[in-house]
């Protein structure tokens, strides 16, 4: 059974129809990439899945339960985490606090005002573990807002995966990075999403074809193809609608 399943999802802003009936099934453990030209609605689709926007019609199921139109925190608690295209961290808190906060709910602390965090050895160890995974151990006590860009992107990933969510949505994780930084980031993404379901929006085709088991192509709010990388590469419609454009870009 699909872990994340979209059925005929529509989204309009006023009279502008952005998402025009997307259906998509993503299997457990799959590494799924969503590609498409600018303005195809990729980010909107992410906002719908993660609860930032409400759908106009259609259903979204996570592990068999409908999650469309639920607030983001409800969806997060059910095991879906996402990153953002524009770095979205807690700038005035330390790097360590950023990660630790991301761990709190999944560790069952809820809104507690009676647990002292300094005493939660296991929680703190776990936060340090995540920091070492994303290579920010040395910057643990640094204010997050003062990190270099690539480090902020790494922290963004760290916040996203810290809770141990089963489904992870990454939105252009390597955008704006240099080539070597991007390579490191891909390595990191592979490592931290081991055994998890990954959905990724990315413009860099090398990375997409490198990481993904399956690729869906979104054009003008519709999925025009969803298949294995090799098949996508050979798909006539995709080449017309999208890859041709990228080829000329590259």
């Amino acid at each position: 059974m699909a872990i994340l399943s979209l059925k005929d999802v529509h989204k309009s802003f006023g009279i502008t129809h952005i998402i025009r009936g997307v259906s998509l099934d993503i299997e457990q453990g799959e590494k799924h990439a969503i590609i498409g030209p600018n303005g195809a609605g990729k980010s909107t689709l992410y906002h719908l899945i993660s609860g930032l926007y409400s759908v106009t019609s259609g259903t979204i199921e996570l592990k068999g339960e409908e999650i469309q139109n639920k607030p983001p925190y409800e969806i997060s608690r059910r095991g879906l985490a996402r990153s953002f295209q524009v770095t979205n961290i807690f700038p005035r808190m330390s790097v360590f606090e950023n990660v630790r906060c991301a761990l709190l709910w999944s560790r069952g602390f809820r809104y507690s005002f009676w647990h002292l965090l300094g005493r939660q050895g296991e929680l703190n160890d776990c936060a340090m573990e995540v920091l070492s995974q994303i290579g920010l151990l040395e910057k643990a006590s640094f204010p997050a807002g003062e990190l270099a860009y690539a480090q902020q992107r790494a922290l963004e990933l760290g916040i996203t995966i810290a809770s141990g969510a089963e489904v992870i949505l990454l939105d252009e994780p390597v955008a704006g990075m240099s080539h070597s930084e991007a390579e490191n980031a891909v390595q990191l993404i592979r490592q931290i999403t081991e055994g998890k379901t990954l959905v990724m929006v990315e413009h860099d085709m090398n990375i997409v074809f490198d990481v993904a088991d399956r690729i869906s192509v979104l054009v003008y709010g519709e999925v025009i193809a969803s298949d294995k990388p090799a098949a996508i590469r050979g798909n006539q419609r995709v080449q017309e609608a999208y890859l041709g454009e990228v080829a000329t870009h590259a």
Binding site: G51, Y73, S76, N88, R92, E97, L104, Y111
Partner: peptide, 16 residues
């Protein structure tokens, strides 16, 4: 603190 810094992100780590 997290909500002060970034209320939207806070909602995506499980907190209203």
């Amino acid at each position: 603190n997290a909500v002060r810094d970034n209320p939207i992100r806070a909602e995506f780590i499980g907190y209203s």
